[in-house]
Every structure is written in C-alpha cells, then in structure tokens.
Design a protein around this nucleic acid. Structure first.
Length: 934
RNA sequence: GCGGGUGUGGCGAAAUUGGUAGACGUAUCAGACUUAGGAUCUGACGCCGCGAGGCAUGGGGGUUCGAGUCCCUCCACCCGCACCA
C-alpha cells in the first residue's frame, strides 16, 4: 500500500471538522495554555509559503501542549479593517466589506489545507459589528478615564472631577502643554475656579486629561492616502503603505495618551519573555532619558527665559553657545536688528528643505541671532544661534551646546570659529569632542575636581535650589494618533455638540459603519463619513479608528468570542489569563505590540482584567524570502542568453516565474507559453548552441538567481496550495520547520522538500510493505527502545526551546535506524506516532487507525522520556592530543560519585588540574567526556 | 554613528552546561535493481596527502588538559534606530 497523502489528508481534515476535536471549552479541570498567532490582514494576494511558517510553529506547539494534557486555546481570526481594502475599493469600485469577505474566504481555504488545529468556532473579524461594538466600548472606557500620576494608574474620570472640585488641579497639572483654550491660558486653577467654570469649559479641560482625547496637534499627513498616520507608520519620511510622502500638518485628531504609560511599558519588558532585539526596539521607541531642564536668562529680555533640556547638566560650565531650532518661538523676539536679515534668510532656507533632504545630507549650517543667554552659575554671556540640527519636536527645541563634550556641538563650533571652553582637562585633545562621564571637571566653578558622573546630581540639586532648573525625565515616545480620515475602520462612538465631545451611551453600540458609494475624503481633512447627510445630521465624529484599534485587544475576544453582554466574561479572562506563547513577525515591534500592551495596562487598572501584560512569551518567526530567477535578454533583440555566457552580450535582466525553473535550469517550453511575447523566443544556451522555437533544445538554459523578498511583482512567490497538492500538508509542515530555526529568515527552496517527503514515505513503509500492514506485537529489544527513547528525549528538549528543525532531523534519524534494524513493532511505532502527530498530524492519525487503534492520536498522551535506555556503558577512546596519549572515559549517567572516583583511580592521573578541581566537579560532568592523561 | 543579531562543507544546517565538529537533508559523483526512470536501495562526498597523517568553525590573539562554544581585538553581512541634546 502506497502513502496516499491526498486521500489521507482529505479524510482527516473532514473528520476533525465533523467531530469538532479542536473545539476548546472555557471550563476544564486541566491546566490552560494559550497559543496565539498574530492574526493576518486578509490581503487580496492570498498566502504564499512564507505566511504559514509561524502558524505551523504555533500549531506544533499547541498540539504538543495538548498531548501534554493542557487545555489549549489556539484560535485564529482576521484583522479586517484597514487602508489597503479601501484603496482597492477606490481603484476597483468593490466595497471593502465585499473584497474583505472574499479575501477571508481565500485565506480560510488555504489555511484549511495545511491541517491546523484552530478552534474556528472562536474566529473573530475586527470589521464585524459584533466585534467592533466592543472596540468602541473599550474606546469609551479610555475616553472616560484619566491617568493619575500620583497612584500611577488609569482611573475613571469621576475621581479626577472630585479632586478638581475639592482641590483644583495643583496636584494634577494638565499632562502636556497642548492646552487649547486661549480663554483659559492658566494651566493651574483652584477648586473655586473650577467650580465656577461653565460646563463647556469644564469639558474642554477634562479633555486634556482623558486617556483617549481629541486635540490639535502636529500630525503626519499623507496627501496621497488622504489621512494621518501614526509615527510607526511613517518610515524615513514616507508612508509605510505605498511609500508616499508625509508632511507635518496641524489637525484636530484623536490621540491615545500612551506617553503616560511610557515608564510602565518599559518596566513591563523585564517581566516578559521577548527577544533582546524586540525589547531594544521597544525601549528605543520609548526613548527614556533623564537629565534636567534649565532656564537661561536672556540679556535684555527680562520676560523671556530660554529653556533647554540636557542629559548632561554636569557640563554647564562648558556651554559656549546656545542653539535654537529655527522654528523656535523665541527666535523672532530675541533676534537683534543687525542679524534680522540673516536669520530670516536662514529660516526660509530651512523651510525650503524637506525632511528627507535634511536627513539625506547633513550639513553644518546656522546663524547667530545676535542675542546672548546668561549662564545661571557663571553669569557668562553665551551667544544664541539657530541651526537645523536642533529639532523643534524634541525636548524644548533648544539646546545648550558643549563643544568639548559633544561631537555635533564641536563641529559646529569649529565651523563657525566659536572658542571652545575645555572643562575636562587632558581628556579633551582639542580636535575632537569627548563625551566621557568619567573624568574630573575643571574650569567648572563649584564643580572643579568632581567626577562628571557624580556632578550631575550636584548640579541638579543646585539648579532646583536656585530655581534655575528642575530634574526632568524625558521620553521620545509621543501620544499615538488614533484617528484616520478614512472609511474602512471603526466609527468613533462620539457625537459633537458645540465643540464638546459627547460619548454615545453603551446601549447605542455598536455604532455601525454606514454603507457608502464613494470613498472621497470629506471637506477640510475630514473622512468620507462627512459626506453622509444622516451621519453629519447626528453630528457624529467623521473620523474612524486606525488599524491597530481592533488588534489591541483581540486576544481577549478569543476567550469569549460570542459574548454580547461584555467584551469578554471576567471568568473567561481569569481562566485563560495571558497569552502563553505569541507568534508573529518583528514588524509589529513598535506598533501593535506597544499599543496592545498599553490597552492591557489600562484595562487592568480599570479592573476589567486581572493581568497587565498581554503576552508572556513572544516568538518572532523569520521571513521566508523568495529565491528569484532571471533571464537575460540581449538588448534590442528577442534572444535570451544563458547566465554563464551573458557577459559576452549586452543584456537586460528580467524576472522569470520561479515555477517554470527547475533549480536554475529554465523550462524553455513553459517559458514560451508563459507570456505571448515570448512565444517565439530564441535561446542562446550555456554551451553556445541555440534553441529555436518548435525544435528540441540541444542544451540547457541557465537562469541567474538572487534572494529577494517574496512578492508577486518579482514572480518569485510559491503558493502553498501547489506544494500541498504535490507533496501533502504533512510534508509541507515538516519541511517549513526543517528549513532552519523559526526565528531566522531564509530563502525558500522547493528542491529540498523531497528529503522530507521521502522521510514520510519511509515511515509509511515501516507499517506497510507490498503484502500490506506489517505490525509485530512482540516485545521491543533494548536496542530498539534506545532508539525510541533517544528520539523522545531529543524532542522533549527541542520542542521546549522551539528548535523545530532539529526535531524533524530527530524523526529522520529515528526512522532510518528503525528501518535499518527492520523494527516493525507496535511497542516502538505507536509512541513514535504520538510524538510525530504535532508535526504531521494527518499521517499520524491514519497510521494510528490502520494499526487498529480507535480514537484520535490527539487524545493520547505524549510519552515521557525514560532515561534507563539511554545509559551508555563505559567506553574508551584512545586519542592523541598535543602528542600525549589520553584516554577519554565516558561515565554512565547514573554513575555514583564513588564509581567516578574508582574510574579515575584506575588510571594513573598525572594532570595537575585533577588536584585543583574537587571531585565534585567530576560528578557534575557525568555523562560527558573526561580527559585523563595516561 | 548607536543598539541588537549572525558568521561552520557547493547549499540549508547540527553540535543544550566547554568534551569524537559537520548529525539530518539537499546537491554532486559512483554503483545496484530496472525496458526505462524524475521510483527504491548502497557507497563516496570539508581541505591537503598515494598513505600514515596533517590542517580546518570569518581573521588574529588569549584562558583551558581540551574552545565552534568563554575573554580580548579586528573584519564582513543582516535587522532596528538615527542630528534624541
């Protein structure tokens, strides 16, 4: 009987579906385990072989945990709102709801062929009103909350109102400087003042405290997409999607006050099992730095203070000039008449340079304003300059420049011949700045003789005493822009009345997205919803939420997906708790992961869930790259020249569909059929001969090869459907794992799959030969048991460190060895099948049944490793090392300390290290080699 | 520039706390069975050498009885951030 994977896989996928084996209960005496994949955005292109890599890894782990007796939650769903569906709608006139539904159907049928153990009863779609009802509800929770810095918690707005009524806001100043009501410029107010404010004023002030708030701010506006983007959606000044230019624009926007959570997001990283790289990316994004904010007086401008932020207040005596961002508000006021012309010229020069130009070429430019600041300690007069190297958006938009300690400041000083004060003695060589903190200060007034590192605190204390500055912790992270001027997203459950945002009552949710015919942007930077009369008549918010809204909490909805009374029953979230294993790509490091961590913390503070980190362990799968193939067309002709001899011609390199290339050899006939214009192509083959249309090719045409990102335009995508059709899902699953470590990126190579396929056929032959089923009932020998248990031991260890590629190798070794000793015994093969089932579930189930077992393999237990068969008897290996003869003794695993001692004593040990190291050390290394000089 | 990671045969890779480097798989070559094979099986396969043997884990140095693994240093590649004060 042949290994007929097509029938087998069809049969078992159907059976699993009918019997609902992968349905998971929410109440179980078994321990829980939650394995989650980052849910896909259902794009129109469908899956290529790179997409399922993470899903296969997580499926293997979920199945393994199930075999270990856990109640495993392993769901899948779709992140279905977002820009691409809307762009597609604009271009093709298909409603996003329709194209999304169609794409989901394609995804689902592709996923189903691979044999995943998802509980599809728990599927979620973020664009489903039943789902986004709760996204809106959670938004209202954030809207109705504020961040109390005293308790360091998210709290309901009521607690703030009570505080304001009794104490004013002196203990709880407005969180940022965006105070927007010109009539009330005072940032602090008393209880009396608060109580006397009219309701509208109160509301405007409260908005400044809300966790989800609406305000005016500089946003990343993308004209081509007609919407604003979050900082993480902008890469090098262009949009992540589409690569369109992005500019700064001041617009009314919704925000999430993620900055208040910066410190907790940072600290939380320590409690969580993410890769170093991932933690680094997140903490860089948060960008915490600590230092001081210092006020410099300006000569002749008694009312103005020049505020700078520095991480190095210890260098205060080394300040030789100040630099303002050209956009800084003080520039106009302090510029002297003599410098006005120069300054204006410079400011317009800076404005003419785009963000991209600025980043592309970094020139040293700047202009003196004519004004002088005064050092708060030495009273020295310091010239104030403006320059584009100081960014308006960071810190206070102004710096104190210390050329002896900062390379940029130093270059600037040299360029404009500003004299440099040396405050670090020999550590400054006169030609280069030295940013050390570990040298002794000189020329520094009361700090002379102090180590810089220690001086930092001393200066800050002195600044605070004199009122010239304060200690300040600064974060790079900005509040997250939370609205999009787009159609295909969650509507905000907000109504506007006289400029006041009124939340809808929860009973009015979901606020459904109305059907539209046109996706044109509305007037004045508003979304398409502004074109709908019924919408604007109700004064509903016309923006929609961004893509990350629905994905910030989806892991909770899987726990209780059909609940219409709550986003997730508390009992369910208490049972399932955190995601134990979260599998996905690194591209979400600073977007989705940060947002969902923030939401989780807010929800925890508000008592909605019992944990404040969503993901316990994060596994980042690498990308599977495409292995592109090229043909070389001789320029100006229809002839194609083989890669090896293309240097003899002037050629153009063209991508060729990888599916019509075998390794690097082109299938010439398939190529001629590929596109009409190639129908009569002539090939100059590797050996110089020619292949003409209608004649058999006399030689081979060799293609060029290169590893690139897998994409349709490079015709290097490989569809998993084709692989599954040709080799089966089990082969596909095992091969994806066999390619290499999950975390690493690697190019797809269809050729290598044969080896894994051969392995499964070999396994099949252990049960079947020409005469049919061959399973022997006799007891297993020690040797056979050793083969089995060595495999199990390796699997146990490797699965738990997510080393799935070595697991596949272990299976191969095992089957090779069993074939060699012609072992067809039930006692060996059945445990092996159980081990194999997470990797190749279909074939495992089939063989299990063929062997006369009832029930599915997934209900069996994963056998425990039994060490007794692994013990090795002592062996001696003579080896020569450095010309001396040594004997290596392998000591058995269960050797006692005395036995080890005896072994060592049997040999005349002459090496000194034996005396140095106590015998305990030897016992510690039992099972390993010990070298003994004889 | 800063931070993180990686570097082992023709290729993908293994080697878990330092202990027989290259398991497993591909590719290639040779052979067997075959009318034939793109089925199956066997063997060879890091480099030098006829051989015994020697040399090999990006380069150099160190610690150690012993280093792919630990330390120092240099180089290359990949990823992230990037005038962050």
């Amino acid at each position: 009987m042949e290994y007929n994977f097509r029938d087998i896989e069809k049969k078992w996928q159907q059976r699993w579906q009918e019997s609902g084996v992968y349905r998971v209960p929410n109440d179980s005496p078994r321990r829980k385990f939650y394995v989650l994949d980052m849910f896909p955005y259902p794009s129109g292109a469908g899956l290529h072989v790179g997409h399922p890599l993470g899903y296969i890894a997580s499926d293997i782990f979920a199945r393994y945990k199930r075999l270990k007796g856990f109640n495993v939650l392993h769901p899948m769903g779709y992140d279905a709102f977002g820009l691409p569906a809307e762009q597609y709608a604009i271009e093709h006139g298909v409603h996003p709801a329709e194209s999304t539904a169609r794409n989901i159907a394609t995804f689902r049928s592709q996923l189903d062929k691979i044999g995943f153990s998802f509980d599809w009863d728990r599927e979620v779609r973020t664009s489903d009103p039943k789902y986004y009802k709760w996204t809106q509800w959670l938004f209202l929770q954030l809207f109705n909350s504020w961040y109390n810095r005293k308790t360091n918690r998210t709290e309901p707005l009521d607690t703030l109102i009570r505080i304001l009524e009794s104490d004013g806001n002196k203990d709880h100043p407005i969180p940022d400087t965006q105070f927007q009501i010109p009539e009330y410029p005072q940032v602090t107010f008393t209880a009396e003042a608060w109580n006397s404010f009219p309701e509208t004023t109160k509301q405007v002030i409260l908005m400044e405290y809300r966790v989800a708030y609406c305000g005016f701010g500089e946003v990343n506006w993308c004209e081509a997409l007609g919407t604003v983007l979050a900082n993480d959606e902008v890469i090098n000044g262009v949009s992540e999607r589409g690569g369109y230019p992005v500019e700064k624009k001041r617009l009314r926007q919704w925000y999430l006050r993620i900055t208040e959570y910066a410190d907790r997001l940072l600290q939380g990283l320590e409690t969580v099992d993410f890769s170093e790289a991932m933690k680094e990316m997140q903490s860089n994004w948060i960008g915490k730095s600590s230092g001081a904010e210092i006020d410099f007086r300006i000569a002749g401008h008694e009312d103005d203070m020049l505020k700078v932020y520095t991480t190095r207040p210890d260098t205060i005596f080394g300040v030789d000039f100040m630099v303002l961002a050209p956009e800084h508000e003080l520039v106009q006021r302090i510029t002297t008449a003599g410098q006005e012309k120069e300054v204006d010229k410079y400011v317009s020069y800076v404005k003419s340079r785009s963000e991209r130009e600025r980043m592309a070429e970094k020139r040293i430019t700047g202009v003196f304003t004519g004004a002088y600041a005064i050092n708060p300690f030495s009273e020295r007069k310091i010239p104030v300059w403006i320059s584009e190297y100081v960014l308006a958006g960071y810190g206070t938009g102004a710096i104190m420049a210390v050329p002896s300690g900062d390379e940029r400041d130093h270059k600037f000083a040299r360029h404009f011949s500003i004299p440099v004060t040396n405050i670090i003695g020999d550590a400054y060589n006169g030609t280069e700045a030295n940013p050390t903190k570990d040298t002794i200060l000189s020329n520094s007034g009361f700090l002379d003789g102090m180590v810089m590192r220690d001086a930092i605190d001393v200066v800050i204390s002195r600044l605070e005493e004199t009122g010239a500055g304060v200690r300040k912790v600064h974060y790079k992270i900005r509040d997250a822009a939370f609205s999009r001027q787009r159609y295909w997203g969650e509507p905000f459950p907000i109504r506007w009345e006289d400029g006041i945002a009124i939340p809808l009552d929860p009973s009015e949710l979901p606020l459904e997205l109305p059907f539209v015919e046109s996706y044109r942007p509305g007037p004045e930077g508003e979304g398409p919803l502004a074109n709908i009369p019924e919408w604007t008549a109700r004064r509903l918010e016309t923006n929609t939420m961004p893509g990350y809204a629905g994905s910030s909490w989806y892991f909770l909805r899987y726990m209780d997906p059909h609940n219409d009374a709550a986003f997730c029953d508390r009992k369910a979230s208490d049972y399932w708790q955190q995601v134990d294993l979260y599998v996905g790509g690194t591209e979400h490091a600073v977007g989705h992961l940060l947002y969902s961590r923030m939401w989780t913390k807010a929800m925890y503070d508000l008592g909605l869930i019992s944990f404040d980190e969503p993901y316990k362990k994060l596994l980042n799968q690498g990308m599977i790259q495409g292995s592109s193939r090229f043909v070389y067309r001789v320029r100006g002709s229809g002839e194609f020249v083989s890669a090896g001899i293309r240097d003899q011609y002037e050629t153009d390199q063209l991508h060729v569909d990888v599916n019509i290339v075998d390794g690097v050899e082109l299938d010439i006939d398939a190529f001629r059929k590929w596109k009409p214009e190639y129908e009569n192509a002539v090939f100059i083959l590797e050996d110089g001969t020619r292949a003409l249309p209608g004649q058999p090719a006399p030689g081979k045409y060799i293609c060029g090869a290169e590893v690139e990102k897998m994409s349709k335009s490079k015709v290097n995508t490989v569809n998993p459907d084709h692989i599954v059709e040709k080799y089966g899902a089990d082969t596909f699953r095992m091969y994806e794992m066999f390619l290499g470590p999950v975390e690493m990126s690697k190019p797809w190579d269809t050729k290598g799959i044969e080896g894994v396929h051969r392995f499964l056929k070999k396994l099949w032959r252990l049960f079947f030969d020409d005469s049919g089923l061959i399973i022997k009932e006799e007891a297993a020998t020690d040797g056979e048991l050793k083969i089995l248990h060595r495999t199990i031991k390796k699997l146990e260890e490797d699965i738990n460190r997510f080393s799935f590629n070595t697991c596949v190798s272990a299976f191969m070794v095992c089957v090779n060895e069993l074939t060699e000793v012609k072992c067809h015994k039930r006692a060996i093969l059945e445990p092996l099948l159980i081990c194999l089932s997470p990797f190749a579930p279909h074939v495992a189930e089939e063989l299990w049944e063929q062997a006369g077992r009832t029930g599915t393999v997934i209900s069996q237990q994963f056998p425990e490793f039994d060490a007794s068969y692994l013990t090795e008897t002592s062996k001696e290996y003579p080896v020569s090392v450095n010309g001396k003869l040594r004997t290596q003794i392998r000591i058995s695993l269960d050797a006692t300390q005395d036995q080890v001692q005896d072994l060592v004593l049997q040999h005349p040990v002459v090496v000194r290290w034996m005396e140095d190291k106590p015998l305990k050390k030897l016992v510690f290394v039992k099972g390993k080699m010990i070298n003994v000089v004889v």
